[in-house]
Design a protein around this nucleic acid. Structure first.
Length: 212
DNA sequence: TGCCAGGCCGGGT
DNA sequence: ACCCGGCATGGC
């Protein structure tokens, strides 16, 4: 399994090149983006983040102080704006109360412990938690998303009914806890998904995973 | 024009 | 332990 995963990684890397994720300038911006991009295209999320930046409110303090209604209005382009405003507030409140608003302090917590804490926040599920921990915190947790599931199941590497935790475990049990590797690997799987594994129908004829 | 996008929650089986 | 409807905008 380890060999298969590394083989996939190598093929993807050769095909797509380094991805250098996550598109965000600061760890905090990555956290916000991780919540805003739930079931939403990144270009919509970018508009929302730009609104927050222009308002000079893209900070722990800024979001903490802001009225939720105003927050919802600013992030409107990202869709689900009422729910997401609530989720951002829940995350910020957690950060303020547990770590005095200090992201660095949050990331000092042992991985599985802070992961469980994030998962207990309303609006943060496994993918969002892992994205925050890996891409904002630089902690070695593997991010699984819909593209990863689709690609792996189409290529017979996982069962259709595999759960998020199953797939995360498969990567982490078979690869070293290497942040750079996890970062690139997930980003490459998304690049693959966007190009070859879109929803309606597989388009695997020229998928790089089938090349020889 | 309808369908999809880097999910998650809450209520119902 | 699953299954499903709801949440919403912008792009192709």
């Amino acid at each position: 399994m380890r060999g298969q995963l590394l083989d996939i990684y190598q093929r993807l890397f050769e095909h797509f090149g380094p991805q250098d994720w996550w598109p965000g300038e600061t760890p905090f911006e990555v956290c916000v983006g991780a919540i805003l991009t739930q079931n939403t295209s990144w270009q919509n999320v970018k508009k929302a983040i730009d609104n927050l930046k222009q308002a000079e409110l893209l900070s722990v303090h800024g979001l903490f102080q802001m009225e939720e209604a105003l927050l919802a209005n600013l992030i409107r382009p990202a869709g689900y704006y009422n729910i997401k405003a609530d989720r951002l507030k829940a995350f910020i409140n957690f950060l303020m109360h547990e770590f005095r608003g200090d992201l660095d302090a949050m990331f000092q917590t042992p991985l599985e412990e802070i992961r469980q804490q994030l998962l207990s926040i309303r609006g943060i599920g496994p993918e969002t938690a892992d994205s925050i921990l890996l891409y904002a915190g630089g902690l070695p947790t593997f991010v699984v998303d819909a593209y990863t599931m689709r690609a792996l199941s189409r290529h017979g590497l996982i069962f259709e009914d595999a759960t998020y935790e199953d797939v995360r475990g498969m990567f982490m049990d078979n690869l070293p806890p290497d942040v750079q590797l996890y970062n690139e690997f997930h980003a490459l799987l998304v690049a693959l998904g966007k190009r070859y594994c879109k929803k309606p129908r597989p388009l695997c004829s020229d998928c790089p995973l089938f090349e020889k």
